[in-house]
């Protein structure tokens, strides 16, 4: 029994190591297919159940994102003005907002097909872009690009763009505006207030 457990633990360790070393394009493909497989079977998510979509994104997608880098990109030059504690708060609030955005996009899924564009990288690359395309009959294909960087913990996504629109840098002007009005703390408050109102929407939906 003990021996079996040890073997199992060892196998799991190997599997997680293999995942961390996985090529970035294979990682994107694996996570995308895994998430779509779940959405295809889940009528609740397809009917717009935001709570379930958020849980799915939390479990499957979040571990592969570097939110600190994403937040820095969204905030832009003001990021350097923030103290480490403020940076941490910003990252935590922005993460909640992005997860929500990403989940909303998932509930719009209706049997589209995801195609993976040809991927090339050099052995020493530490930053790459993996390009995919979502195809739907009668509609223009939508280009979705993932920017990844190589960290000790493996490849992590630090930017996602849909039809050329970065979900991250699209906030730069709005965030800059909040910082000019109320400083870094003002920005933290503004994102927190947004998250709170979205949480209100979720609670209302749960009550239905």
């Amino acid at each position: 029994m003990m021996k079996k457990l040890i073997v199992l633990a060892f196998a799991m360790l190997l599997a997680s190591l293999a995942l961390a070393q996985e090529a970035p394009d294979a990682l994107v493909r694996q996570v995308t297919e895994e998430v779509l497989e779940i959405v295809r079977k889940d009528k609740d998510i397809q009917n717009g159940n935001a709570r379930k979509a958020v849980d799915l994104v939390d479990a499957k997608v979040i571990p592969h994102f570097n939110f600190q880098h994403m937040t820095a990109l969204a905030v832009g030059k003001d990021w350097r003005k923030a103290s480490p504690q403020q940076q941490q708060q910003l990252t935590s609030e922005f993460k909640t907002l992005l997860v929500r955005t990403y989940s909303n996009a998932l509930t719009g899924y209706k049997n589209q097909k995801v195609v993976y564009r040809p991927f090339r990288m050099n052995p020493g690359d530490t930053e790459v872009v993996v390009r995919t395309e979502v195809q739907q009959p009668g509609n223009q294909p939508v280009q979705i690009d993932y920017s990844l960087e190589k960290l000790d913990a493996g490849w992590k996504v630090y930017d996602v763009s849909v039809a050329g629109i970065s979900l991250v840098t699209n906030y730069r002007d709005q965030f800059g505006h909040e910082v000019r009005n109320g400083g870094i703390d003002g920005l933290i408050k503004a994102i927190a207030a947004k998250n709170k109102s979205l949480e209100g929407n979720l609670a209302k939906a749960d009550g239905k």
Partner: peptide
């Protein structure tokens, strides 16, 4: 995409404008 934009934006006008310019 209506709900995505409504829920993502701090300022919907700025969000739509910057998305258009990026696209």
């Amino acid at each position: 995409s209506d709900k995505v934009v409504d829920e993502a934006a701090l300022d919907k006008y700025a969000y739509v404008r910057d998305a258009y310019l990026q696209r």
